[in-house]
């Protein structure tokens, strides 16, 4: 590569440093200072408040559940899509992408129509003679909404991972006497682990940082870190408290990414051979 080519990186780097690295570092630094002196106070405040702890554990719990559910639903579907004829594959991939192209507010509001007291499910229940139940403003509603929002991010990398597996790998394994279970664990999973890692990372970090869906489907009583941050910053004007939440969110995603890579790394060695 000619030396001048490095200069092509400068504009993008400058933008990132100015718009991302710099404010983020300032944010991080400011969370340790109150009235000009160094302090852990805003962090101990966060840890000592049971409301913040509840929001933290709810965020981790919901993000984990949504990630697992996205794998459970997305993995078989991605496999099926990668095995059908090209014409249908294009149609189905378009359907997977479609939710990403709708406005998140509109998409979330459609859940109000389904889960509401006079929504689709409750109307069905009352028509069958049952009592209507409260579905909105529960963790269940938040999980369903986030799953809907992020499942494309799980499926797209998986579809491309499956597409990259040569068609004759599975017959080859069969001819060598591998059982269905062995093919799944020792052939398919190792060959798609990169897609799974990317998908799980995107879904988990997406859940931690999503705002619109938890705000609308969970409301102010089921606070997640993102909605807690908004409450601190824009209604209480507690900027240092809000900064702590932002730092905690950032740290949580970093830790989660490391764990995801470690856990999936177990399957990484190709064909189960090390």
């Amino acid at each position: 590569m000619p030396r001048w080519a490095w200069s092509l990186v400068i504009p993008a780097t400058a933008v990132l440093v100015l718009a991302f690295v710099l404010p983020l570092s300032l944010l991080f630094a400011s969370s340790f200072f109150a009235e000009g002196s160094f302090t852990w106070a805003s962090y101990t405040d966060f840890l000592s408040s049971s409301a913040s702890r509840r929001a933290y554990f709810r965020t981790v719990r919901i993000a984990t559940l949504v990630t697992l559910a996205a794998i459970a639903l997305g993995y078989p579907a991605a496999y099926a899509i990668s095995r059908i004829t090209m014409r249908w594959r294009v149609v189905l991939i378009a359907l997977v992408i479609l939710p990403l192209m709708t406005n998140p507010v509109a998409r979330t509001f459609s859940w109000l129509v389904i889960l509401g007291r006079e929504g689709l499910i409750n109307n069905l229940l009352t028509a069958l003679g049952a009592q209507s139940v409260r579905l909105l403003y529960t963790e269940g509603a938040m999980i369903v909404g986030l799953l809907h929002l992020f499942i494309p991010l799980m499926m797209l990398p998986l579809i491309s991972a499956f597409e990259n597996i040569p068609q004759d790998v599975v017959p080859a394994a069969q001819s060598l006497g591998a059982s269905q279970a062995q093919i799944f664990v020792r052939v398919l999973i190792p060959l798609t682990i990169e897609g799974l890692t990317i998908g799980a990372t995107l879904v988990f970090t997406g859940c931690v940082t999503a705002y619109v869906t938890p705000a609308i489907l969970g409301g102010s009583r089921r606070l997640m870190l993102s909605t807690l941050l908004h409450q601190r910053a824009s209604t209480m004007l507690d900027w240092s408290g809000a900064t702590v939440v932002a730092v905690v969110m950032f740290a949580t995603t970093l830790v989660a990414i490391t764990i995801i890579r470690r856990v999936f790394g177990v399957f990484r060695s190709p064909l189960g051979l090390s």
Binding site: R117, G119, L136, S220, T235
Partner: peptide, 20 residues
């Protein structure tokens, strides 16, 4: 027994509208 704690009056209006 509280459905949700509303943050804006517009949010409450839609809670009434949806029969919530």
């Amino acid at each position: 027994d509280v459905v949700t704690f509303y943050a804006r009056s517009s949010e409450l209006v839609s809670l009434f509208q949806q029969g919530e």
